[in-house]
Structures are given as C-alpha cells and as structure tokens.
Design a protein around this nucleic acid. Structure first.
Lengths: 108, 108
DNA sequence: GAGATATGTAATATTTTTCTTATATATAAA
DNA sequence: TTTATATATAAGAAAAATATTACATATCTC
C-alpha cells in the first residue's frame, strides 16, 4: 500500500474519505482544481461547511493547494485545490500489515 | 476498483473500515478465522461491543462466516468469521468514477 | 447601499456513532 | 454454585462528527 503508514493514520485517512461531502470534493477537485467558494456553490453547501470539510482533507494531505490567484489588491487570494496523488489499496492482507510494526527498515 | 459500486455504498464501506476496532478485527480475522467471543477476549473488549462491530462488517459483506462448530447439543453454535476477499483501490480517479453513473453497461 | 465575490474562524446546535449496562438462553468445568 | 464458555439483542449514556449561525474583512458590480 503506502510506505510505512500505521493503523492510526490509516483510520484517519479512511475517516476523512468516509463522508459523502468529502468524497465528492475529491471527485470534483480531480476533474478540475477549484477554490472552496466555487466548490461550495457547486455542491450547494454553505461556505463554512465546505471550508470545514476541505480543511479536513487538506490537513491529512489528501488535497493540496495547486494555484493561487489575486484579482485585485485588497481582495483575498483565491486558492485552488486538487487531490494529491494518493493510492490506498484496501485488502485484508494490506490491513493486516498495518499492525505489523515496521522497525525502521533501511538500507545501510 | 470494484464492479459498479456507487458512491453511497463506498461511503458505507469506508465508514465501516474507518474505525480502529473494526480495522483491527479485519486484520486479526485475516490471520486466522475467529468467533466473536474469542475476538472480544483477544482485543479486550466487552462482548456486546465486539458483536456490534463485527456485525457492522458482516452486514456490508466485509467479513463472512467461514465455519461453524457445536461442541454439545444445547450449546450455542460457535461461528467463525474471516474477511471476504475485497480489494478497494482508492485513488482520486477511482473516486471520481464513483460519481459517473453507470447506465447498466452489459454485453448483449 | 445591497448583493455577489472570496477568505477565515468561533460558538453553538444537531445528528450520528460509539460504548456500557442489562437482559435472555444454555452447558461445562471448577 | 459460581465462573467460563458462547450466542444475541435492546436501551440508554457518552462521545464524536457534522451542520448552522454569526462574526470579521475587503472589493466589485448593480
């Protein structure tokens, strides 16, 4: 799956994705990077709610700021987000591996 | 990812896996099929809680009954569970596909 | 000036999830 | 006869997640 991720982190990532709003956000941002305001409009959500959900994804590194734009001085910088290029392969075997502690394996 | 699964079902599956107890259950059952009582003891959980969590996984088809055993007549049948052989590949692209409605594509 | 654009946060309220306690059944072992 | 084995469910309590409302800032268009 993903390099040395532990079970607690995996639970956090799964929790982040296990929500209809956040999952759809990933889908929409993958189609085209968007700012929170545009995302909120498109999804018909109040801005603070959209901001809250996108923030959760951002904190876990599932989405990233990919571009900024300032239309005029004084106006807030518009921030465009896109999903990061994650790949999580969920199988019983991979889930089991999350609990096999990885004692810092390295070459050298 | 997985044959014609829709976003709502995916959210349910992710919710089921996005819990430390349920995720560990999958890991433990993958190592070796177990009954709920044994699982509860091993995880140091009260039986009703273990039963509750395993039931959630069972309802979604993430774990299955693989063997039953009755030690004596009158005694309850011991039910052994193991994870089903699921594979969910989580990528932004696969998540996007969840929202592209699949108009019953078939051959013939 | 009102409404739309655009950001962000805090406080509260609501809803959902999770956990505990209690109930019920039945046998074997100590 | 108490404890351990083994199942299952329901009710209520506690905790966490989710959603709303309000606030603060700033410009542009109508």
């Amino acid at each position: 799956m993903n390099e040395n991720i532990d079970s607690q982190t995996m639970v956090k990532i799964l929790k982040a994705l296990a929500n209809p709003i956040r999952l759809k956000m990933i889908a929409l941002l993958h189609k085209e990077p968007k700012n929170v305001y545009a995302l909120a409009k498109e999804m018909e959500l109040p801005y603070p709610l959209a901001h809250l959900h996108l923030n959760g994804l951002k904190k876990l590194g599932l989405v990233k700021e990919v571009k900024t734009e300032q239309k005029a001085k004084g106006l807030p910088t518009i921030k465009y987000y896109a999903p990061s290029e994650f790949t999580f392969i969920l199988t019983p075997e991979n889930i089991r591996k999350l609990y096999v502690k990885n004692k810092g394996e390295r070459n050298g």
